[in-house]
Nucleic acid binder design. Structure first.
Lengths: 144, 144
DNA sequence: GTTTTTATTTAGAATTATTCTAAATCTTGA
DNA sequence: TCAAGATTTAGAATAATTCTAAATAAAAAC
């Protein structure tokens, strides 16, 4: 495991955010620290509560903004496909979903021989899986 | 594409629900019909609106209940990992998530050589992907 | 075939999650 | 220093989901 000095860390953050046209701010730093400190996939609300301890004036909206910024610049992942309402699909055959970051549409896609060998920890009982590709659909890719 | 007669359809529904200890009701039938009719990954709210046209007295809570029933019995998939709050993860290395249906915890899991060849439609631009395995963690598997 | 039990549905309230708004603050660069 | 733009804040607004208690329907037991 490669570790980074605090300074390298900060530079990494600045670069990644910068590449997306965003700034490194104390709040974004703080939210990122929260994610790194306990890697337990917290919700935005949990992040808010933890960040508040070190930075009591931080607001709800800022945490959402910071999480967005981190996700957009590739510093964190959103475990759900998208925020907001959950979507449903009656197609139970082996297939994945393509989520267009432009228009939000979800398309079914083929998964020829995916997931041949996922290793789950001892004693875990996997039942089913879900694969989502994020990117841009043809229309949205053209528009950019 | 295999098609089913209405009767076969109903029997299939009854069986799948029954195996999970649930009944086939007109509302569940209706919600399932909505999902089959337009396979556009609707939200629960959209399902509610569409179901209401054929069954005006159907309620919000029932649609959620029906969707849960369909998902639990393997007749539909929930495109998001879970309902409710979105979760975040700072681990940007290639890995997947294991979501325990018992306790709700999300674990990082290895993905040795997953997704070798996902075919996306012409013109689509894939950027990243997300793999989630659903099942029971060791603790929850033991308890059952 | 009633009665009892259990599951399901309903309307609407309550809660939770997310987004929006307008004002204040901070940064950057002319 | 000043102007422009980005970011943060508190709190309101909206959206998504869950809960509650009463009513209904179905299945099981008598």
């Amino acid at each position: 495991m490669k570790t980074r000095s605090h300074q390298q860390d900060e530079q990494h953050l600045t670069e990644q955010l910068g590449a997306t046209g965003l700034r490194l701010t104390p709040q974004r730093q703080q939210v990122y620290d929260v994610l790194l400190l306990r890697r337990d996939h917290p919700t935005a609300e949990e992040v808010f509560i933890r960040a508040k301890k070190a930075m009591p004036e931080i607001s709800h909206a800022t945490v959402y903004n910071c999480l967005d910024a981190l996700v957009k610049s590739g510093l964190a992942r959103q475990v759900n496909v998208e925020r907001g309402a959950t979507r449903f699909c009656p197609n139970m055959t082996e297939h994945g979903h393509f989520h267009c970051s432009g228009c939000g549409t979800i398309y079914d896609v083929d998964l020829p021989h995916a997931l041949p060998c996922v290793v789950v920890p001892r004693g875990f009982k996997p039942l089913r899986h879900e694969v989502t590709i994020h990117g841009f659909c043809a229309d949205c890719a053209k528009k950019k």
